[in-house]
Design a protein around this nucleic acid. Structure first.
Lengths: 126, 126
DNA sequence: GCAGTATATTCCGTTAATTGAATATACTGT
DNA sequence: ACAGTATATTCAATTAACGGAATATACTGC
């Protein structure tokens, strides 16, 4: 894994947001779509890009694709995501918002009235 | 200064090498050219690119252009260069080689028989 | 098999980056 | 003024990245 590839991945705020969310724990495309408020094709393509870089991997569960970090996560990636989350720049604030929204979303999915299929929910918790 | 811009700068090994060399202390284009063993136009353009990103600045001294880091150097840049220098990947080894070559070069320039013009030498030491 | 849902891919136009060759600019020393 | 050196810029060709619309694929439940 070349350092340049990691920097290419980080050179776009949307990809950073995707990586930040996925790093916390696996997520499916529809939720990433919701959290980033971006069209399906865009999310799908950026995930494909991250996959060609070898940074994430996908696994199908029924209709859903679950994306997770490819192991091992390079140090360079981990430390940069950490740095960005801690920063007071606009990107840092964005990541913090995303992280909160993600927690909120997962809480909703876990609620009794949730319409989230169990196949999907279990996959997210694995 | 946007984080994405810094990552764009780092997404190319030659630019990383330039930044790594310049970070240690100012250097002129001809020496960067020598150290990276790359054609003049390429170096000049990559320096121009780094300048548009606001990461470096240039100052003319006679025939020579002295490039230095723009102040303040963003944390994100400093820590990444450090990380890369410390890494055992090929890019890390490259930076270590560059740094040694740079020291060697400056030593030669300081030697009594050096043909390096004093204007230039003094600029490099400022 | 069929309708519906989630996701990926293809097609196409647009912009950004990368390169080398040639040329221009800015300066020096004589 | 002129020749030489260092550096930057322009031009033109190539490739990479980006975005949206439309379409294809993979799966589900019935």
């Amino acid at each position: 894994m070349d350092a340049s590839e990691i920097y290419k991945a980080l050179a776009d705020i949307q990809r950073v947001r995707l990586l930040n969310l996925i790093e916390a724990s696996p997520l499916c495309v529809c939720h990433l779509q919701t959290l980033l408020d971006a069209p399906q094709v865009k999310i799908s393509k950026q995930l494909a890009y991250l996959k060609t870089l070898g940074l994430v991997e996908a696994e199908r569960r029924g209709n859903w694709m679950i994306y997770r970090m490819a192991q091992p996560v390079p140090d360079l990636l981990t430390s940069n995501l950490q740095h960005l989350r801690d920063s007071k720049e606009s990107s840092g604030r964005q990541l913090q918002v995303d992280t909160r929204a993600r927690t909120q979303l997962l809480k909703q999915l876990a609620a009794p009235k949730s319409t989230c299929p169990k196949v999907l929910f279990n996959a997210l918790c694995s």
